[in-house]
Design a binder for these strands. Structure first.
Lengths: 225, 225
DNA sequence: CGGACAATTCGGCGGCCGCCTAACTGACGC
DNA sequence: GCGTCAGTTAGGCGGCCGCCGAATTGTCCG
């Protein structure tokens, strides 16, 4: 039992419980949840969820904000979100049998377009990244980078990119359903909020799925989705 | 506690034990180990390691081959190897304090060049991937792909790529020390075995680290490492 | 102030899990 | 055939871990 192994195990352990994993998956929507909401979701008592949250916050996976008598908790940052989506994507997919019509359409909507923490994912997200690559707006030759053309394109669209210390402008994130990278990072987040603000996409209540109204076309890129 | 969460937790649980994590990390060298070897490495009894191996094999992370009175076990495939390296890479790095001169040089050798399952990693692996990108041998515009130029280059080098069903020719793998992608997949594996065969790199006993003798230059690419 | 409500602390219960030793199975090789 | 050696099975021990209900703290609001 090596020190290295112990460290890896420590991280894995945080997700190695059904309740905690459910919480983390729910938090992938990027919102901050209260302890009680999560307790209800995970179907455990409030004391139980409280302990789990202590563990996850202590481990650095989640961050908490206390407001009055509420404890809001969210994923620490885009990197931890990507860690979770990445692991879920890597785990071999059991072909899930949808057992009702509504389940089918729900799953399809999820695969078509959704948010992944704070950026766009699903077929839409991947198509957007592809289109941007094709147009030379992002460049993959050295990691991944925004080209000058990309910068101009963003300005032209009127997208404000919020630069935060320590967060890369662009970053690739493995898509759970497509198994191919889509665009994350500050630019990915800015594009997502811009699209929501412009009404190009809108949230479908009760999940991370998005309704698409034009979308990629609206970005001024050719590919359809 | 959702079904989705339970599934994610199940995978995490396989790595959520120090002994099992140590085993998986050791297996990253791509070799097949016997149960006793692993028991010694992880400092547990043989019955204990036997149970752990049952669990990991049952979970699909490892594959076993029985030969006489030996049970050889190895990572199921490149994908599972990449899953483990990926998770280890994502976990925030505690700046490890090397407590001896030999530990420093060992760590540096590991960072400079090593194998990652069956392909090249470390500064060398990343530099190789960069150089190949720069020369247009691989293309990142749609996922990652080998270009016709890349194919010609391989043939010219005399590298035989073993095509196996279900394994992509090229694939990116997140480097643990560099935090940037290097080249995996069938081509990555072929380049690694070719380099070993030609003596461009050679194993340093007692680990995954490699001794570099020319290396990137030998591949006929310009960048130094 | 006092009731309602979010969250936590405490104590305790049950179960699973990792580990061991001892005994057994089965392959190898003289 | 018989010792040796790899691996497994069986049995059992100890501890940790997830969960709960009851009681407590702390905040909000009428």
């Amino acid at each position: 039992m090596s020190a290295e192994g112990e460290e890896l195990a420590g991280w894995a352990r945080m997700l190695a419980d059904g309740t905690r994993a459910t919480v983390c998956l729910a938090l992938l929507d990027g919102r901050a949840w209260t302890a009680t909401e999560l307790a209800k979701l995970a179907k455990v008592s409030r004391p139980t969820i409280s302990e789990h949250l202590n563990l996850l916050v202590g481990g650095g996976l989640l961050t908490e904000v206390r407001q009055g008598r509420h404890r809001y908790v969210k994923l620490t940052g885009p990197d931890t979100a990507e860690l979770i989506e990445g692991l879920a994507a890597l785990a071999p997919r059991r072909t899930e049998v949808a057992n009702s019509l509504s389940a089918v359409s729900k799953r399809d909507a999820f695969a078509r377009a959704r948010t992944c923490y704070d950026h766009l994912a699903g077929k839409l997200g991947v198509a957007l990244a592809d289109a941007m690559t094709e147009r030379g707006l992002i460049d993959w030759s050295d990691g991944i980078a925004l080209t000058p053309e990309g910068q101009a394109w963003l300005e032209n669209l009127g997208v404000k990119v919020e630069v935060r210390r320590g967060r890369p402008a662009v970053r690739s994130c493995l898509d759970v359903t497509e198994r191919r990278p889509h665009l994350a990072g500050a630019v990915g987040a800015a594009l997502c909020s811009h699209a929501l603000q412009q009404g190009w996409v809108s949230h479908i209540p009760g999940g991370r799925a998005l309704k698409v109204n034009g979308a990629v076309q609206a970005f001024g890129l050719s590919s359809g989705v």
